[in-house]
Amino acid sequence: MIRMTGINKGYMLGEEKLPILKNINFTVEKGEYVAILGPSGSGKTTLMNIVGCMDEMDSGEYYLDGLAVHETPQDGLTEIRNKKIGFIFQNYQLIPTYNILQNIVMPLLARGMTYGEAEAACMNTIELLGLTNRISHKPGELSGGQKQRVSIARALVGRPSILLADEPTGALDQSSGKDVLRLFRELNDMGHTIVMITHDSQVAKSAGRIVRIVDGELYED
């Protein structure tokens, strides 16, 4: 599913290039639930951005579902993000002026569906996440846990190959965080491949496999 070899990434800091990811080799098989655990500044978010085709690597090879991402142009990356990846963000990243349904259907609209088609296609997911009564609300009217459920619903509606979650419980209270992790477990049991990034080892323990990242280098547990 995911096969990364020799990934390097750095950012220019003045005249010098600061290495963030150093020779990363990372593999995820279909149906796996992997946690990438690392402290702040370790490069885990950068790794997730590259896995999610949101950022470019300096060197290395990355194959997703057999597609050579490292050779794919920008428009192709957009297509990969839309069809193969579902993002779940720490701070939910919902558009505040749209209601819940409008937020959730967005990946389907981007695929060329009409609003009606998209709405019909996502109703099961909305029901699964217990958001049926909230679809006409604005994100500002929901709790943190509910917002994260909306974010998960949006990630799921496109039936992606992989769910990428960046600190999904980071902004939630303990109870809501546990709910989200339980949901991830259930989704994984249903066959979804999940890669979660966290700095919290307790959260990481909910995953089937933990990979540690320290100073831009990846270590398998």
């Binding site: 990243q93 919902l94 981007a110």
Partner: peptide, 16 residues
């Protein structure tokens, strides 16, 4: 800008 980032993340193209 953040909204544009979200749209791009969920797969809206440059053209969209």
């Amino acid at each position: 800008t953040n909204e544009i980032g979200i749209l791009k993340a969920v797969g809206c193209s440059r053209k969209d």
